[in-house]
Design a protein around this nucleic acid. Structure first.
Lengths: 131, 131
DNA sequence: GTAGAAGCTAGAGCCGACTCTAGGTCAAAC
DNA sequence: GTTTGACCTAGAGTCGGCTCTAGCTTCTAC
């Protein structure tokens, strides 16, 4: 079963059809997309799932080259688990670092927000001390 | 006291001298940088502090245009606290959303890492079920 | 049979955020 | 007195990640 057009996949994933074709050119798909009549792409559920993974990885700041590398390892099949692990662990560390950075930023913003709320009388007892 | 060359500020902030000049052109500095002999920039501690804020905001994904907008409000002086608050709250929400997204990604990665560790015999009792 | 929607390819264009180059000034060290 | 190093400006170049265009095919509905 299944057999989705690029338009349907765009709708499901939230990516544009342009981006879907672009991602394919960039080698982000685990398998080459099948083609139907007139050369139209035919996606299956597995493709959509894989795209979901790619979207998550992108959203967390993994560059396309790294996603491609990981995809290639998956495509190559069993035997390279150590390398896959290396890629994932590398990204995991960057994500953790990024979360830490975001936390610091959030502290700063929350601090400033409290100050402005104080100045605007939206809060009580907030000392006024910063720009 | 204070009076730092662009090179010293670069060293302190971790930004390149190119980027410091670029940020200035883009209007990210709360005050115009003073100039010393031969037109060389002379930064003070306040400039460095402000740059620190900008760096945090950038690191958390705030676009330069938004940082410029906020900088302009600060530069304009008191009376626009409501607008500053709006900018900060908007970014605060985006940061929170991003942290949520990173968390989801981290779950995914951690799950996959566990699987590969299992396959590689680095862990016990991990079911093998995903690519 | 023709109009419209959806798809195709190859390649150009765009945007944000830097990053670098060319050509010049100036002060201090040798 | 010249070389070295840090700075200056204006403007060009780069890179990642899309996004769009042109020109074509193919299917479906009227």
């Amino acid at each position: 079963m299944s057999g989705l057009s690029i338009g349907q996949v765009a709708e499901r994933t939230g990516l544009s059809v342009h981006t879907l074709r672009f991602y394919e050119r960039e080698g982000l798909l685990a398998q080459p997309v099948r083609r139907g009549t007139a050369g139209h792409r035919v996606y299956n559920e597995g493709d959509v799932d894989w795209l979901g993974v790619c979207i998550r990885l992108r959203a967390s700041g993994m560059p396309l080259t790294d996603i491609r590398r990981y995809t290639e390892l998956v495509r190559a099949g069993q035997g390279n688990e150590a390398e896959r692990l290396e890629v994932l662990r590398g990204h995991q560390e960057r994500v953790l670092a990024q979360m830490h950075e975001l936390n610091e930023c959030l502290k700063l913003i929350t601090h400033k927000v409290a100050i402005y709320e104080g100045r605007l009388g939206l809060r009580d007892n907030v000392p006024d001390c910063a720009p």
